[in-house]
Nucleic acid binder design. Structure first.
Lengths: 362, 362
DNA sequence: ATCTGGCAGTCGCATCAAACGACTGCTAAT
DNA sequence: ATTAGCAGTCGTTTGATGCGACTGCCAGAT
């Protein structure tokens, strides 16, 4: 017979694998040789398909849940599928429209932006939406203000260049007059404006000596303040929305145990935050700056996420990566659509952040 | 033979019902007559028990899931159990200690207090903790401040007497000088201090005429500001924590569907908030001000909560009920312990709120 | 008047075998 | 290289059967 070139055979095999993963994602049933022969339009008999399937299984892309069953993709199979996904699906125009509509609403603060973004991701994807906020440490202080609340109590408000606002109450050692507060605010702002949050403490304490004569009673306040800026502003926060979506897609998961452990991870945000932070760290180390990254099953690093996949997109402020957003859902998600969504939303968030920079000068 | 007095028989019936509900809550299996004869220590034969069970069933306190099964409490049965619960369990000393420990950490703001409270409720109860924040409308403004962020942008910060702080960015129609900002802040604070949030708008617009000569350009700003105070500060917020607890107690529920719809309600906070608001409204209309209230199954008003119960405690600020907190869990929860917990935490929150009042004067 | 033992009857559930059907892997033919 | 055919494996469905856990009722004991 006519001998086919090896490349062609390889090509066909890959194409078949793509088809299988895609089909499996949609139907969530093991794919059998007979089914492929009928549906895939390859014009091969089921026997031939079986041969190919055996190869793919030996290579670790597919596995059988039990002997007399079809094949399911392994994590390696999903990985192949995602890596060679030819088209990251563009979002439908209507969907884009609706998303932008949401961002058109005036959002002026980082927190609001991130909360809305996680809601959006969850709603559109029908999975859980996650957004990790930039760590405040790297942001620089734009404004720091003490507001008298009566008596010794003041409210301390810090705003950073990236739009983050944090506030917390403090009790002073004395009852300040309005004049004193104004003076103190002026002093503080001169000192900390533009200083990265993580260095506020050093900056303020360094300058403390200079004012000792005039505002001696402020000295310890300023010191305490500097400490609090470091302590309170620093914890980064993780916004997760749409956990209920995951539960209502429970069929997508094999076992309820899997859903439970997934939910538990969502509950203990710290562990998930750690996973996402790793995305940020690793975003610099790659050659090709692929914006959208997919973690399949245990690739994310948590055994609890075995049955899940995570689609993420780091976002930058200026030229530094400051945060990461994405969706968390079943390993059997529609990768193409999800990647498209995450990519799009990620860009919108970046755009919004840089808009804030521009408005600055106005 | 000796005739028993009717009251005694009634008494015994009630006692048995209590025992059954309690036993069912622990074991989650239908309770049968034979089991009762053995375990309840009543010194009656199973046949006699059966007679009593039939009566209780006819009266609507018990039901059989199917003919050849034991009995389960109906909602009415649970209701009886809860209403006649003799001892609302006091929390163990160690548990109280741990809880107070958490509140000892300096919490100066309403938001923080409520978030921590919902976490606490969820952690201790192993159910979901819910806290509905006071509506801002009824609170009065303690302080309102504009903070310049450079250019025309200002950050508007409002603090209320109950410890609520809200902030949002605004763009002015002009670039204010620091002096102008100070003047504006002084003016605004004179006008709105102590005014209920819902009346800020009226107050400010009423006073606008007076300053027109001096600060004509402020007029429209002040108007816009007043509008925003009403709009942004008003939405009350619902804090829910520990949804994962509910999922990991899924065995407590008969059907996964029930867990799903429960989770969905938790996801759409609005509907749950509505239920909780009703608790606030109805808290005034009762003769006996029982602080802890229990809603069993559909009593809460949402069909989705059919399999759940809600234990709540309204909390007051001064003498007005401003919010409600509690736990949400399976209908088969340990009511006694949960009621004790909710009662205790509710009191702590009230205590904290009135502490703030006292600090005020210092 | 109460309680109890006994017994028939109901119903869910676990068990088991048998039949089924969905696959695969292999082999021999094309 | 591909295919048809076939034997063999294994999960799943089905239906029958029996068991056990109940209840309800009644007749007799207390």
């Amino acid at each position: 017979m006519r001998q086919l070139k090896p490349e062609v055979v390889e090509q066909r095999k890959r194409h078949l694998l793509q088809w299988i993963v895609h089909y499996y994602i949609r139907t969530s049933k093991p794919v059998s040789s007979g089914l492929i022969a009928e549906e895939a339009g390859l014009d091969l008999s089921s026997a031939t398909i079986r041969n190919i399937l055996t190869e793919l299984e030996n290579e670790g892309y597919l596995a059988q849940p039990h002997t007399s069953a079809g094949r399911e993709p392994t994590d390696k199979g999903y990985r192949f599928f995602v890596d060679y996904l030819s088209d990251v699906q563009r979002l439908a125009a209507g969907e884009r429209e609706r998303i932008e509509e949401q961002y058109r609403r005036r959002i002026g603060e980082l927190d609001t932006l991130l909360v809305e973004t996680s809601r959006l991701l969850s709603r559109v994807s029908q999975n859980a939406g996650v957004v990790l906020s930039p760590t405040a440490k790297k942001q620089s202080v734009k404004r720091l203000e003490l507001i008298g609340l009566g008596g010794r109590n003041v409210l301390c408000v810090v705003a950073t260049d990236a739009g983050l606002v944090r506030h917390w109450p403090m009790a002073l050692a004395f009852t300040p007059t309005p004049r004193q507060l104004t003076a103190l605010n002026n002093f503080l702002n001169e000192q900390v404006k533009g200083v990265p949050v993580e260095r506020v403490k050093a900056q303020v304490t360094a300058k403390l000596g200079e004012i000792e004569r005039e505002f001696r009673e402020f000295a310890d306040l300023a010191g305490e303040l500097a400490r609090e800026v470091g302590a309170i502003v620093s914890p980064e926060s993780l916004y997760i929305e749409g956990a209920d979506n995951i539960l209502s897609q429970a069929e997508q998961f094999g076992d309820i145990k899997e859903v439970q452990s997934l939910m538990r991870v969502i509950g203990e945000k710290e562990r998930l935050a750690e996973v996402l932070e790793r995305e940020i760290r690793e975003s610099g180390t790659e050659n090709l700056p692929a914006r959208v990254r997919v973690r399949i099953g245990e690739e994310a690093g948590l055994p609890e996420l075995k049955a899940a996949s995570l689609v993420t997109h780091v976002y930058r402020h200026g030229d530094r990566v400051v945060g990461v957003l994405g969706i968390l859902g079943s390993k059997r998600m529609e990768y193409s659509r999800m990647m498209g969504l995450v990519d799009y939303v990620g860009r919108l968030v970046e755009a919004r952040l840089s808009e804030w920079d521009e408005e600055e000068g106005r």
